[in-house]
């Protein structure tokens, strides 16, 4: 796949403008590339390097540190099943085992039809709702084997799964892999305070005049 589209490049410039140092925008930009293509392609990394003035190797260095960034395509639905301690105590490992059997793949792999990737993940901060999982980072709580089957069945048939979904309405809808927030921050031009340039040392005006 590809470099950022002109439309996404405009979004990228908006994001970059909010940081005193361009490279700070790199993780949000890698997410933008992943949102566009479903994964982070080599071409996208070259483009991001151009946008923030670093080498492609530096972009790869950052990209490869963070486990959400996939450098090759994954399934349409990335199913992250937590097996960390709180979930383990309430059947997270058994749920993962069931998922592997139900989909016929081991964790870390994608089904032949390209629909599902399963991952055995670390704590996703829903410990009181164990065992839990996310599908493209949308939460499902207190998931039992039957719930998992129902979620998979819904997704296979193009329906939004509602069983054990943490959120209802648009916020519970499962977007394509790579899409995180449904809303981006936009700072209106007439409201922006401006970046605090690390090279320009002056005390904030509200402290001086206090």
């Amino acid at each position: 796949m590809s470099r950022l589209s002109p439309q996404n490049e405009a979004v990228a410039h908006e994001i970059i403008s909010r940081y005193p140092w361009k490279k700070s925008a790199l993780i949000p930009l890698l997410h933008l590339a992943q949102e566009q293509d479903g994964y982070v392609s080599d071409e996208a990394m070259v483009h991001l390097g151009e946008l923030v003035d670093v080498s492609p190797a530096e972009v790869l260095g950052t990209c490869s540190f963070y486990e959400m960034f996939k450098r090759e395509p994954v399934g349409r639905y990335l199913v992250n099943i937590c097996t960390n301690i709180s979930c383990q105590l309430l059947g997270g490992e058994e749920l993962l085992h069931h998922a592997e059997h139900a989909l016929g793949i081991k964790a870390g792999n994608t089904t032949g039809d390209g629909l599902f990737t399963i991952e055995d993940v670390e704590c996703i901060a829903a410990c009181t709702e164990a065992p839990c999982l996310t599908v493209n980072y949308r939460y499902f709580y207190k998931v039992e084997d039957g719930d998992f089957d129902a979620i998979v069945e819904d997704l296979r048939n193009g329906r939004q799964p509602t069983r054990k979904a943490a959120e209802s309405g648009p916020e519970g809808q499962i977007p394509p892999h790579g899409t995180l927030a449904l809303q981006r921050q936009h700072i209106p031009a007439d409201r922006v305070a401006g970046n605090a340039d690390p090279d320009r040392a002056s005390a904030p005006v509200w402290l001086e005049q206090a």
């Binding site: 940081y19 960034f69 921050q185 401006g194």
Partner: peptide, 17 residues
Amino acid sequence: GSNFSVDIVLHWGAGAY
């Protein structure tokens, strides 16, 4: 309306404890 001005920039990570 005060002389206090500050931007809050939303930043997001990518999976690393």
